[in-house]
Amino acid sequence: MTPKYALFGCNPLAIEVAWRLSLVQQPFVMLDRDPAMVELARQEGLVAGRIDYTDDDALRAAGIGSHIEGVFCLLGEDSENVFLAISARALDPGLRIVSVCQAPEAAPKLLAAGADKVVDPYEISGARVHELIERPEVVELMEQTVFGLQDLNIAEVTIPDGSWLNGVRLSELRRRMAQNVLLLGVVDLERGKELIFSTRGIDHNLDHQDVLVVIGPRGDVEAFRTMIESPAAPAQG
């Protein structure tokens, strides 16, 4: 199977990410400069290879610019991740790049280097501990359902060209929604790229390429997706 994602770094964090990706059955490859680290990942039973990421040709050979859709920059040094993000972005402008950062100052640099999302492990972990002590029910709920392995998922559905929803109001969609899903919010391109939560109570005028964010059991989410993508409106339920 050709890998869709490239994980740079074979450290424990990268192995954790790899495990997550294999849970959702996404093909990936792990890459590192250090043969010892590569060996470590291989011992875990993961597909890993050695690469000199400072070499653009090597990156190209690894599939960036061709079959790789997303890159994880999980190297130990912020400077390495910045370098990698710049190289990868130059090779493929459409690539999705996620990076970790060690120092908070590195986050804007990584974004400037072309990363789509910067994850600060310490910030997130600290925030989590705080949430755990402040609002344990909420965290527990999220842990067990949406983030956990139970069948409750959050999903985004982009309205395709030729969908019946083109030009339809949100209230109209609500009336015709028969699936057991919650509509959390909409990215209405007329109003910008930010997600607008449905609790704002705006009756959006939906267009193609707008994104709907929903939560629900997998089956219902899939049914909802099919309904959105079909050219004909469903009968009113």
């Binding site: 994602y5 964090l13 954790e16 990410v17 495990w19 997550r20 990706l21 959702v24 996404q26 997303g70 994880f72 999980l74 999705r96 996620v98 970790v100 789509d116 999302k117 994850v119 492990p121 997130i124 972990s125 983030f147 959050i154 999903a155 985004e156 990215v187 997600l195 994104v211 964010v213």
Partner: peptide, 13 residues
Amino acid sequence: VARMAAEFIGQPV
């Protein structure tokens, strides 16, 4: 972190 990164790749919004 792994969860965040992996989820983000799939459905960022």
